[in-house]
Simulated scan of single mutants.
Amino acid sequence: MSIDLIIDKRKHDLGGGFEVGRVLPFRKRRMVGPFIFFDHMGPVDLAPGIPRELDVRPHPHIGLSTVTYLYDGAMTHRDSLGFKQEIRPGEVNWMVAGNGITHSERFEEARAHGAHMHGIQAWVALPKEYEETDPAFYHHEGQDLPEWDEAGLHGRLIAGSVDGMNANVKTHSPLFYMHLEMETGASRLLGTEHTERAVYVASGHIEIDGKPLETGQMAVLSEGKDVRISAPVKSVIMVLGGEPIGERFLFWNFVSSSKDRLEQAKEDWKQGRMKLPDADNEEYTPLPEEKPDAQPMS
């Protein structure tokens, strides 16, 4: 078999009525390689003058890297290191949380002019030896991100290495993350260079070795088997994966190999010990209500 599991996105409210499609984590498959979180945002049309309640207010992270990738629209990133960056389609914004960072994501351009918003937010768990590294933020575009054209297909390598290509994005474990735009009738072989792999359909629908996959579905692929991805119609897909990094625990925006470290992060946020972005120091996202013990992510 080519596919181990198909995951359907589930609606998740980020607050203020802004919904996303949550794909990872999933109860039957918590991670794919080091990818521990995958949200599909939109597509949605935002009118000029949208309320500020739709913004993602300042919030903390530990133990992971975030990557925000847009197909359409724009967002404004601000973080506790002092970075302010407009996030635009086709660019990579890679934020290393490490031992702790806070940031916000604002729809400033949409508020001023309106926007068609569509994109993916993913988190990559850090290996144990890097969980407490210093936080950092990197912006990449152009030649940093290899692009190529095949018959009926345009590709961009967002991060990592695959098929002899390397993105100039600092990562901490073996992984790959690709954006493929496929015209009707296009196809591509995906090899077994990485142990764990998945394919997500952002628009259109595809077939994997003849098995259909619709918009909003992720196929977690079987290990050690080449698969052919075909597009009966024009489609946009994300292909991702890498090497597994071991058990992880997740609470809210915190990821760690240690439950005790999650408890420390919760207390640090509640007690105001994590610096807010300078321009966002008048509001923040409170810690959510406690849930049952964090579940292992493996």
Rank of each mutant, 00 (worst) to 15 (best):
G17N: 02
P127Q: 04
G33S: 06
D79L: 01
G204H: 09
M182Q: 00
E247Y: 01
M297R: 05
R27E: 14
T133W: 07
F254G: 00
E19V: 09
D260E: 15
G17S: 00
E181Q: 14
A112W: 04
N253D: 11
T285I: 13
K11M: 13
P89M: 03
V124R: 01
T76G: 06
A294K: 10
L70Y: 09
G90L: 03
K259S: 10
E247F: 02
R52C: 04
R197W: 05
G15H: 01
S235N: 08
V220I: 06
E267K: 15
D226H: 11
V169M: 00
H154L: 06
M117F: 14
I3G: 07
W123I: 10
G100I: 02
N168Q: 15
Y130Q: 13
Y71L: 15
P277I: 09
Q271S: 15
P296D: 08
P43Q: 03
G73Y: 05
E131V: 10
D280W: 04
G210R: 07
M117H: 09
S258V: 08
L189W: 06
H139R: 07
G17T: 03
E147N: 03
P292L: 10
G119P: 08
V201G: 04
S222F: 02
L5G: 09
N99E: 13
M274L: 15
A167F: 01
P146W: 01
P292V: 10
P146G: 02
V233N: 03
F251Q: 13
R88L: 15
R88P: 04
L145Q: 05
Y138C: 03
M117L: 15
D8M: 08
W252I: 09
A136W: 10
D163W: 11
I36N: 08
A167Y: 04
L5Q: 12
E247V: 12
H61E: 09
D260R: 14
N168K: 15
S258P: 07
R273A: 12
E141G: 05
M165D: 06
V169T: 03
H61D: 06
E53S: 15
I62R: 02
E105Q: 11
K9T: 12
S256C: 11
R27P: 00
D55S: 05
F249A: 05
M238P: 00
M182E: 07
R78C: 06
M31Y: 00
D226R: 12
E91K: 03
P244V: 05
L221T: 06
